[in-house]
């Protein structure tokens, strides 16, 4: 089981990042959310009790300020696939963060980055599967 002191960095505070931050925060994890657009922090609700950093995640200094060397989990959830890939790789290969997950919109990129030991979640594929299951269930 994971410890309650687990330290999680979330890059990107859009719909996915902010929702995930809220879930993890109410589960007593210590969470830091990074987004270059400080207005994005409005997506967070009062339940969120973590820290915020309003800087560009692609700058290495931002990652250092977020204490990436101490992170147990790193989530790349910005709205740009390539930004997610780059920061996820830096987290995994340079800072050896144990668990790194990246959101990728583009399904065809997934194969390569799974080889690089980065977990990827592709909303396109997940929703397609969910749709399919509903459609097939109705047919029965």
């Amino acid at each position: 089981m994971s410890s309650p002191h687990e330290y999680i960095i979330i890059a990107g505070c859009g719909r996915l990042g902010s929702f995930l931050a809220r879930l993890l925060s109410s589960d007593n994890k210590s969470v830091v959310v990074v987004d270059k657009n400080e207005e994005a922090f409005n997506n967070l609700t009062e339940e969120f009790s973590g820290f915020l950093i309003g800087e560009d995640i692609t700058e290495i200094d931002t990652l250092i300020r977020a204490k990436i060397d101490k992170a147990d989990v790193f989530v790349a959830a910005t709205n740009d696939d390539n930004t997610n890939i780059m920061v996820a790789e830096i987290a995994k290969k340079i800072y050896q963060v144990p668990k790194v997950i990246a959101r990728l919109y583009e399904p065809t990129k997934q194969e390569l980055y799974q080889q690089l030991d980065i977990d990827t979640i592709c909303p396109t594929i997940l929703s397609a599967i969910a749709f399919k299951e509903i459609i097939l269930a109705e047919e029965e």
Binding site: T58, D80, D81, N82, T83, I85, M86, E89, K109, E111, L112, Q115, L116
Partner: peptide, 14 residues
């Protein structure tokens, strides 16, 4: 920069 990184990695990896 992130796009340039991904171009090179996909070119090499795939």
């Amino acid at each position: 920069d992130q796009d340039n990184l991904v171009v090179c990695q996909i070119a090499f990896g795939l």
